[in-house]
Structure formats: C-alpha cells, structure tokens
C-alpha cells in the first residue's frame, strides 16, 4: 500500500515538474509572436527603456543626486538590456526586404545606444572627459522614433 502511495506521489511530483517546465517554455515561445517585425518592435521597446534609464541615471549622477554604486549598477543593467535587445534582433529571421531593412536599422540604433551607455560608463569612471549627455539625449529620441514606428507590430 505504501509502495503504491509512493509511486503515486512520485508521479504527482513528476507531473507537476513537467507541467511547470511546459508552462515556462510556452511562456517563452509566446514572446516570439508577431514574426520578425514583432521581435524588432519588442527589442525597440526594450532598448528605448534601457537607454532612457541610462540617460536618467547619468543625469542624476551629474547633478550629484545618486551614488556611485547605483550609477554603476544602473548603467551596467542598461547595457545588459541593450545587448539582449541586440541579440534578439540578430537572431530574428527577416523574410521580406522591408524586414531586412528594419533589422539593419534596429541594429544600427541599438548599437549606437550601447556605445552611448559605454561612453557614460567611461565618464563616470573618470576614464574619459567627454560628456555623453547630448549624445544620450539624441540617441534616446532616435530609439523613441523607432519604437513608435514599430508600435503596430507589437
């Protein structure tokens, strides 16, 4: 009797684990909806959010309102988000000329944004004396435009 119960409990545990894994995998697949343009749109939202974060972080740092720890971490997190967005765009498989063009444009904007965040990191660490404020602001506007342009595909 106890053997049957143990088998039943193992099956329940296995089913729960398989179920949880399936849900996670399905949730992951759902983010790939909308084809290549959907991927570019989501990447643009992610990149735009990351760059806005970097811009706010750098502004708070230059006005002496934030600590080195928070500034370093927020810039690092922004860069990670941008690299993640870049990876998503690179991994997408465009089918049409329009999609190929959007992929190239998205990569260009995201990479420029990543360069700006690196410039901000260098400025904060004192390695560079260049002020990336203008560049961050201009790139933020460019990514915002791209995000709005791709909004219908989200």
């Amino acid at each position: 009797m106890s053997c049957i119960r143990r088998t039943f409990q193992r099956r329940v545990a296995l089913s729960v684990s398989v179920g949880a894994l399936s849900v996670l995998m399905l949730a992951g697949c759902a983010t790939t909806s909308g084809g290549a343009m959907g991927t570019f749109s989501r990447a643009a939202v992610q990149a735009s959010s990351a760059l806005s974060t970097a811009q706010l972080t750098f502004q708070l740092y230059t006005t002496d309102r934030s600590t080195n720890g928070v500034t370093d971490t927020a810039l690092k997190d922004s860069l990670k988000e941008l690299l993640d967005a870049e990876q998503q765009v690179e991994d997408a498989s465009p089918q049409t000329d329009a999609e190929v063009a959007t992929q190239a444009e998205s990569l260009k904007q995201i990479r420029a944004a990543a360069d700006d965040v690196i410039a901000a990191q260098l400025a904060v660490s004192g390695t560079s004396s260049d002020d990336p404020t203008q560049s961050l602001s201009a790139q933020d506007a460019a990514l915002n435009d791209l995000r709005q342009q791709l909004e219908p595909y989200k």
Binding site: S48, L56, V70, T73, D77
Partner: peptide, 13 residues
C-alpha cells in the same frame, strides 16, 4: 520616460 523596470537599480532611481 518610457522606462520599464527590469532591474532593482531602476527601483532606486
């Protein structure tokens, strides 16, 4: 500012 929170550092900003 269109910032979507994905990290704890953003919570402190």
């Amino acid at each position: 500012q269109g910032i979507q929170v994905t990290s704890l550092s953003q919570v402190a900003l």
